[in-house]
């Protein structure tokens, strides 16, 4: 789960940079990147709160 969070945050951030430089910073791809980042951040917190302590 931690790895998935890492992956999503990395993809989201990379896609955002890509959207800024290669897609003329249009708001639609930026918000898609934001959605990926939010999912990654939620998974990161779910892992921290619910799974990490159990481990």
């Amino acid at each position: 789960m931690e790895k998935l969070a890492y992956l999503l945050i990395f993809i989201g951030a990379t896609f955002w940079i890509f959207s800024i430089f290669l897609m003329r910073a249009q708001w639609q791809p930026q918000l898609l990147a934001a959605t990926i980042l939010i999912v990654g951040i939620i998974i990161a917190h779910v892992w921290e709160e619910l799974f990490r302590e159990k481990k």
């Binding site: 980042l37 951040i41 990161a44």
Partner: peptide, 8 residues
């Protein structure tokens, strides 16, 4: 998005 990326 940049703020979320910084957080991430």
């Amino acid at each position: 998005t940049s703020s979320l990326a910084i957080y991430g």
